[in-house]
Structure formats: C-alpha cells, structure tokens
Design a protein around this nucleic acid. Structure first.
Lengths: 157, 157
DNA sequence: TAGTATCCCATTGACGCCCATCAATACCCA
DNA sequence: TGGGTATTGATGGGCGTCAATGGGATACTA
C-alpha cells in the first residue's frame, strides 16, 4: 500500500484531534517519522499532507538551488509553512489552529486521497470547489493526455 | 529527524535567553557542538542558523571561490559575522545584542524551519515578508518542479 | 567587586499516552 | 443465507510527562 485513494470524513474532538483514516496511515508505516507533514495549498483553502521522505526530497531539491537566491527563498515557503504532526498511539493528529483557521475546519475533517499525497479540507468547502472544477471540466470538454507508463529496470521500450 | 520544518515563536526572558524549539534541537543531537551557529542574511533583517556540519559545508563552499577575489571576500562576511551560540542545559541560547538589534527582536523570537537550516526573525517582520513571498508564489501559479525524481521500490538511482 | 555568564531548581500549561466505549464491518457457524 | 460474534477502527476523556519559562545561586572575568 503506497497510494492515498478515496475520501474520508472524520470528526474533530474537543482537543482538536482527528483520526487519520487507517488506509492513509498504512502508507506511512515505512517512514522513519510516524506522522505527517502538512503544508498549505496556494490555490485553495486546504492543506496537503505527505510523509517525511517527500519532505526530505523537497529540502534536497531546494539545496540544489543557489543559496540566498530569490528562487530558493520563494520555494522555501513550503518548508516554512509546513506542520509536523505526529500520530498519537491511536493514529490521530492534532490539527494546529493555523490549519483550522485557514481551512475553516470546525467539527469535521475531509481527507482526500491524491495518490502520493492527500489533502485536508473542510467538507463543504471541498464540495463547492469540486462542483466548480467539475463544471469547468464539463464546459471545457476537458481531456487528459495520459503519460506513457514509466519504465522500470529490465523493461523494454 | 534532521530537517527543520515549520515555525515556532518563543519568548525572550530578562536575561536575553530564548528556548530553541525542541523539534529543532533534535536536529542537533548528532552534531559535535551542542549549540548553533547564527549568521546575518543580506536580504532580510534576519539571521540564519545551522549546525556545525552545515557551517563547515559553507566554509568549504567559500574556499571553492577564487582566492583573494572580491566574491570570496564579500561572502566571507558570513563567517566573520557568525555567532557560536551554545545551548544551556534547558536548550536555550542567549541571543547577542547584535542579533537583537539587527533583527529588531525584543520580546519574542520566531524560528522558521528551512530544511537543513532555519531562520531567526522578529515575528511581525517575518509576517510582512512571508505575505509577499506567498503572494508571489500564488501569482506565479506556484507549480513546483522537484529536481530529484521520486524513487520507488526496486528502482535504481 | 560589579557585571556577566552558567547552572540548577521550581512552576505551569500544553501535549502525549493510556484506557474505555462505541460502531461498523468481517467472520463464523448452523 | 441469516444471525450471532469477534475484530478493529473511530472517538472520548483522564492523567502523567515534558517543554517552555522564570528566578535564584554560583562561578567567572574584566
């Protein structure tokens, strides 16, 4: 299991904790850090979450850029805005107030699988956005060019 | 744990001490020197901090520049202006007056994770800067192209 | 010897850990 | 195939621990 798929709605308790869906948690087992990293999305009032390996990757990519460059500074916003959220023994995380405020989450949290990462939404906000995206895609007659399947070792072209 | 991620605000006491956030301190455990190095940034009224290993890396990078060149002289200011700040038993450091003055820090200190290093800001000064960076990223569409291709199970690097 | 730096101890408030309960689902057997 | 049961994930809440903070005592130094 390595992919985040599907949507799940879980409650937030008085302490601000919310259970991360079990299927999602399973994708974290091979990580050195038992928890997730959440960073804000630019386009939506929602957060995206990933594991430590992705964060390392991001950090290393930033290191390739020249130190003190604008480029590095701008991209570093992700690292700066990220929250490190450890799982409690029951697989819950405590959502910091910044996330609650930015997403509008109060009583329920929506987890949206996105493959390698997943998103965290306020359920109704997601519905609205999803409706709009669907309408746009419909109006546009949206098409998608699928990428050629990635080649693994030992495979012919 | 080796990455600095997220933001933390801590108080400064009468003696000029401030607690380095525990998650940040953890990234120093494998360092030979129990403390941090802080050097000023050119672009902002803020300081950047790192461990001994990164400092060595920085020093080595400077040596790669032509000896006696203006470039090397200019960037070497970083080393000249760096402060070596040891942790006290509680994990605090005493910020020297030069840092307080240059950053405008008085009662609170903001620690900003940046991956392999982190920055030290006066909270409000950072807010302004971050707002701008976030707006730029948003305006730009902020699609982030990662340099390092993701490695999957069974794939070679 | 005043000023400073370092260490040690106390307080407190948030957070992590543990245990109990509930609900949904999977499993088992007649 | 239906009903009963076991399992497990989600949820709630109490409590202990630890990180952050404050202040005092002591060593050091200029």
């Amino acid at each position: 299991m390595a992919l985040f798929v599907g949507r799940y709605v879980n409650k937030i308790d008085k302490k601000g904790r919310v259970s991360v869906p079990k299927p999602f948690r399973l994708a974290f087992v091979e990580q050195s850090f038992a928890g997730l990293y959440a960073y804000p999305l630019f386009k939506f009032n929602a957060f995206e979450a990933c594991g430590e390996d992705f964060m390392e990757r991001l950090s290393n990519s930033l290191e390739d850029l020249p130190m003190f460059s604008d480029e590095q500074d701008d991209l570093s916003v992700i690292l700066e805005s990220a929250h490190r959220l450890p799982f409690d023994p029951e697989g819950r995380v405590a959502l910091p107030s910044e996330i609650l405020k930015a997403t509008g989450i109060t009583s329920q949290t929506l987890f949206v699988g996105r493959g390698r990462r997943f998103q965290i939404w306020e359920p109704k906000a997601y519905e609205v956005n999803r409706g709009q995206a669907f309408a746009r895609a419909k109006a546009r007659g949206a098409t998608l060019q699928l990428r050629t399947p990635p080649k693994r070792e030992g495979e012919e072209s």
